[in-house]
Design a protein around this nucleic acid. Structure first.
Length: 486
RNA sequence: GUCUCCAUCGUCUAGUGGCCUAGGACACCGGGUUCUCAUCCCGGCAACAUGGGUUCGACUCCCAUUGGAGAUGCCA
């Protein structure tokens, strides 16, 4: 490319939610622009009126903002190439299509709506393409039909001879035989442009230099290039991205969709993933910095992003790895920040646990992958789960129901003797430590028993002392006496 | 069906002809540390789809096969 400023765009259609695949496309387009000190543009593609969803555009703004992907031009921030909403550009497209007709690169078509192909027969054969009925209509007939107000569409006229080749930054040279290119519709019966047409016009008129999009457009790109050429416009640089896949219960892989789990940004956030972690994770799903690092703040990605790191093969979305990465982000938060972001997921609001949240949150920060794990992790604080004395067996701490009984017998009176005012983590730990020392066993043994006694669980956030401090003297002792009776 | 693209551990990936008995991460398994289970640390398991070429030498280049994905809309 020349000295020209890099301009990339993200052109979502307002569907009401943001698929992570789309978000990743936006991220890469944004990163490419930022890394080249270029501009990133947001354009709303709402040419399909039938699909209009209320408030869907706001979802796009909110998601991009939450992800930290900021655009330099767009419907909400303005710019020199507006309007940035396709429905507001409606009047713009028809003249371009008519220009193409004049140039012989497009034609009016008065055929009935092409009936949707049969749901595919036994062989899975799908009828393909337009039959070219109106391709060479007599100009006089066209004029008459137009004058009579006959409904029409405008189709691209594609020369079926030879092959088309273009270059893609990720996939290299792509060559397609022109005969498989269909005379696609440019202007629909309702006067609106199709995505295929609007895209080309908008990208050109908005000065887009790098078209970043999913690789489902790989095989239709030659048609777009024919359009650019018919207009005499410069073809942009293409950056086609591999798809994000999901794995279903049977182990089959396909384009990531709802049956694989949450696939929208807001869905993931609701599942307890931090926006920053989601962005970091998807950045590495199909792109590599070519080194062993995995945790990258967005600001750093803006510096180091490079199209050379883009992968050709599709990637399976791995919720486990996202959970791990989310845990890393959670741990990196300040304790106060963690308490703040995790509280809404905790379920403590309005309960007796709410005042104790500042005590509980620190115990969770190092052991949570998804924020939604929190309620089940702290459920025992409100109600102790059922358990049997089997749980008292633990090889490592040399524990069994007998050692537990002994520990209860010795420790309950000691805890009882502790004054309410002294009931804190240090004092409680001191009591257990002293007991272990006099008995000559590892501290793990009494702690194993007490942990289970007050929680009913083998694994808990925090240790027995922390739990007792949160539970308070009365409730702790009640649970311990019950445990001793088992 | 046709067209296009893809192919390294279960998953995300590094690797651009010799640095590869293929590196990192997640998951899994084992050990260690921490006043305690978890966290953390250390270790282990585990891959170049197959078959032909090219080359002194192929994970890397070419071809075929197989497998996978996408496209084939008056959706975007």
């Amino acid at each position: 490319m020349s000295e020209q400023t890099v301009r990339t765009r993200f052109a979502p259609s307002p569907t009401g939610f943001m698929h992570v695949g789309n978000l990743r496309t936006a991220l890469y387009a944004f990163l490419l622009a930022r890394s080249q000190k270029g501009k990133f543009i947001l354009r709303i593609e709402d040419t399909d009126q039938a699909r209009y969803v209320d408030g869907a555009v706001d979802v796009i703004y909110k998601t991009l903002a939450a992800a930290g992907i900021s655009h330099d031009e767009g419907p909400d921030v303005g710019g020199d190439y507006g309007p940035y909403v396709q429905s507001e550009r409606k009047h713009l497209y028809l003249p371009y299509a008519e220009e193409l007709v004049k140039k012989g690169a497009a034609y009016y078509c008065f055929c009935d709506k092409h009936e949707p192909a049969e749901p595919a027969d036994a062989e899975g054969v799908v009828s393909s393409g337009y039959d070219g009925h109106c391709r060479n209509l007599d100009p006089e007939v066209v004029k008459a039909n137009l004058a009579a107000g006959k409904p029409y569409v405008i189709r691209q006229k594609i020369d079926k001879e030879g092959v088309s080749t273009y270059h893609d930054a990720v996939f290299g040279e792509i060559t397609i035989e022109n005969k498989v290119l269909d005379d696609q519709i440019l202007i629909k019966r309702d006067g609106m442009p199709t995505y295929n047409f609007a895209n080309v016009i908008d990208d050109h008129t908005m000065g887009i230099t790098h078209v970043v999009r999913g690789c489902e457009y790989l095989s239709s790109t030659p048609k777009y290039n024919l359009l650019y050429r018919a207009f005499g416009w410069e073809i942009p640089e293409y950056v086609h991205l591999p798809l994000i896949m999901g794995r279903d219960a049977d182990g089959n892989v396909s384009k990531l969709s709802k049956r694989h789990g949450s696939v929208s940004f807001e869905g993931l956030v609701a599942d307890g993933y931090l926006p920053a972690a989601i962005v970091n994770y998807i950045a590495l799903l199909g792109w590599s910095p070519k080194n062993d690092r995995e945790i990258f703040p967005l600001s750093e990605l803006e510096e180091i992003f490079n199209v050379r790191g883009l992968n050709k093969s599709s990637a399976v979305f791995d919720y486990d790895k996202l959970t791990w990465m989310n845990g890393e982000y959670l741990k990196a938060l300040s304790p106060a920040e963690f308490a703040r972001v995790s509280q809404p997921f905790s379920g403590v609001a309005g309960t007796e646990l709410e005042p104790k949240w500042p005590l509980i949150a620190p115990l969770l920060q190092q052991r949570v992958g998804r924020l939604t794990e929190i309620p089940e992790k702290i459920g025992f604080l409100r109600e102790q789960p059922e358990y049997t004395s089997e749980l008292f067996c633990n090889k490592k701490s040399k524990s069994n129901p007998e050692t537990a009984k002994a520990a209860f017998a010795a420790l309950i009176p000691e805890f009882e003797a502790l004054a309410d005012a002294d009931w804190d983590v240090e004092a409680l730990n001191a009591i257990m430590t002293r007991y272990a020392e006099t008995l000559g066993v590892k501290i793990g043994q009494p702690m194993w028993a007490i942990r289970i006694g007050v929680s009913g669980l083998a694994v808990t956030p925090g240790g027995p002392a922390e739990i007792m401090a949160i539970l308070g003297k009365e409730e702790s002792l009640r649970r311990l006496r019950e445990a001793a009776a088992k």
